[in-house]
Amino acid sequence: MSRLWKERKNVLILAGLLLGQLGLLSLQVPLGDAPSLFEKAAFALAAPVLRAVQGVVRTCGGLWSGYIDLRGVENRNRDLQDEVLRLRQENVRLQAELRRLADGETASAHLRPLGKAFVLASVIGVDIANPYRSIQIDRGAARGLGVNMAVLDARGRLVGRIIPPVGKGEATVQLVTDDGSAVSVVTETSRVLGILSGDGKTGQCRLKYVPATNESVREGEVLLTSGFDRVFPPGLRVARVLSVRPDASLFKRIVAVPFFEFPELRIVAVLFDEGGGGEPGRP
């Protein structure tokens, strides 16, 4: 036996191994598809290794794709930055458009009761050196705008009037806060007449030519256009009296604050004269 082992050791080992595995195979036959105990044990040993390997491979794959294989990322990043810039610009444009439409709706709702034809315009420029004196709007002679037409804010409050120059598609508006402006106004309750001029510097106005003997003008009183200047239709709300003081002259020193809010002046309405162009209530 020992001789046979010495002479045929390798073949005997091979035969033993094969027989062992054939035995394993034959043991499984009655079990059908159910795994044998040995198979379960081998699987229990190999499965964790396989799972660990899968984890390592997944981690390595993540490292590779996330940190090492970054070819084309710079170009993609540049493209995305361009896209972000474009989308931001688009967003700003759309927000402005939305705001303009909302302002237009608001303006139409407030101005329709006036019963006058008007055209809506966007403010496209402000006098940089004297911001309380004039603004530029994006409607002009092509839409029927002319000199001395009244300009209101989106809530129907007086802003100013069209002054030369009036371009085909643009016009200049003299604000009521300009020191060269003069609007004939009347106090809402006491019906005292006066001329409202701006100071051109602070955004406030002065109510001029109210006699010093007049005691009926009070702080907080609302000033409306009188219509006597034949420029502005009567009844438009213009300003509110801020302070009433005596003066060394024959007239009182009355300061008023206009109703329109300069920083929020984005949309204005230009009122047409009686029989003028434009479609009532339509921007």
């Binding site: 091979l14 595995q21 195979l25 499984q28 044998s36 198979e39 190999a46 396989l50």
Partner: peptide, 25 residues
């Protein structure tokens, strides 16, 4: 071959030992 084949068999469906015999040989 036997060890590797049995591991391969354990990791696949089917009878345990088929790949073992083939790889042992």
């Amino acid at each position: 071959g036997m060890a590797g084949g049995l591991v391969a068999d354990a990791l696949s469906l089917g009878l345990f030992g088929v790949a073992g015999i083939a790889l042992t040989t």
